[in-house]
Amino acid sequence: MESAGQHGEGAADSVAAADSVVDRIQEAEEAVERSLADLRELERLPVSEHVARFDAVHDALTDALNRAEELLSGPSSSGS
């Protein structure tokens, strides 16, 4: 039989896990938005600086997709 304390702890763990997921999603979205904002400024930059901006957007999108994949696949067995 489960005690009231044990049940409450499980619920708190679930809420904390959900909060962590939301935080990770928000971080990824913010990184993508920052990178896209940088792209909007391309016309003001010399062409020689464009590649660095494109690389930054690519990195942000790759990171966001990797985070989404991790979140969809469930908890990692690596413990990170």
Score class of each variant (00 low, 15 high):
Asp23Phe: 03
Arg53Glu: 03
Leu61Arg: 08
Gly10Ala: 08
Phe54Gly: 03
Ala68Val: 13
Ala4Cys: 10
Gln26Cys: 07
Val21Trp: 02
Thr62Tyr: 02
Ser76Gln: 13
Glu9Cys: 05
Glu43Ile: 02
Gly8Ala: 14
Glu29Arg: 11
Ala16Pro: 02
Asp38Ile: 01
Glu9Ile: 13
Ser35Phe: 00
Ala60Met: 01
Asp13Ser: 07
Ala37Ile: 04
Ala52Cys: 00
Ser14Tyr: 00
Thr62His: 07
Ala68Asp: 13
Ser80Val: 13
Val51Gly: 04
Val32His: 01
Leu42Gln: 03
Glu43Asp: 13
Leu65Val: 12
Leu71Glu: 10
Asn66Lys: 09
Asn66His: 09
Gln6Phe: 01
Ser78Met: 07
Ser48Glu: 14
Val57His: 01
Val47Phe: 03
Ala17Ile: 05
Ala52Lys: 05
His7Gly: 09
Gly79Pro: 06
Ser78Ile: 09
Pro75Met: 09
Ala64Ser: 14
Gln26Ser: 13
Leu65Asn: 13
Leu39Tyr: 02
Ser73Glu: 14
Gly10Arg: 15
Ser3Leu: 11
Ala11Cys: 08
Gly74His: 06
Leu39Met: 11
Ser14Gly: 06
Ala18Phe: 01
Ala68Pro: 05
Val47Thr: 08
Glu69Tyr: 07
Glu29Asp: 15
Ala52Gln: 08
Ala52Thr: 08
Ala64Lys: 11
Asp59Lys: 07
Ser20Asn: 12
Ser76Met: 09
Val32Tyr: 00
Leu61Trp: 00
Val57Cys: 01
Gly10Trp: 04
Asp55Trp: 01
Ala37Asn: 08
Asp38Val: 02
Ala16Glu: 12
Ala18Cys: 01
Asp13Gly: 00
Arg67Asn: 12
Val57Ala: 06
Ser3Ile: 11
